[in-house]
Amino acid sequence: MTEPILSMRRLGKTHGVGAQRVDALVSVDLDLLPGELVAITGRSGSGKTTLLNMAGALDEPTTGEVIVDGQNLATLSKQELARVRRVSVGYVFQQFNLLPSLTAAENISLPLELDGMKPALARELAEKSLDEVELGGMADRYPDQLSGGEQQRVAIARGLVGPRSVLLADEPTGALDEATSESILKLIRSRCDAGAAALLVTHEPAYAAWADRVVRLRDGRVEGISVRSKTPSSTADLS
């Protein structure tokens, strides 16, 4: 069995104390294997984004632990956490994912360059990454010269550039129309099929359905998990 690339154990998050105490997450266990796309759904306030933020080392859990690439985040310093965000996980948000003052390629190479990679090499990897999201010719465009869908593609390319292998997508299609959304999901799916792992937060069942596993959160707890059939391709099943 493959080792999970991202692993959460009895993850809990509490905001406030006393009467203001709110449990955002209660003892969540979740593993993400390489090549796997896991969707997290649930209503607003169910803890989806909190979970994602802790997976991406943006937030610290109150209880439990997060292990990314074999590193327990709780044992890392702030500098090292920043490094995890540079080299292990990549974020895609709903919109405004790109720094407006950098070109597409520069946006993608930013985490690599921040990690000290030579600009030329980072650029090379960024261009490769752009090819993978089918935006080969757009390396030198600025975000305001890209459509919403293209911006999200660039963000996905950035999320998986170089050594990064875990994509954390928080409602990546929230600001897009139906058809573009589907192409974005398809892209994430194909990147996962190519070996990346992705954690997708969405409240749209149709988008969650692209995942191998759909984890439904309710009030900070896992309410249910539905798994895709391993071989769903026979048409006969549908008659």
Binding site: A82, R85, V87, Y91, F93, N97, L99, L110, L114, R158
Partner: peptide, 12 residues
């Protein structure tokens, strides 16, 4: 934008 940089691993 500052948040985005942080999410992409920019340190303080």
């Amino acid at each position: 934008e500052i948040g985005l940089m942080g999410a992409n691993g920019a340190s303080v």
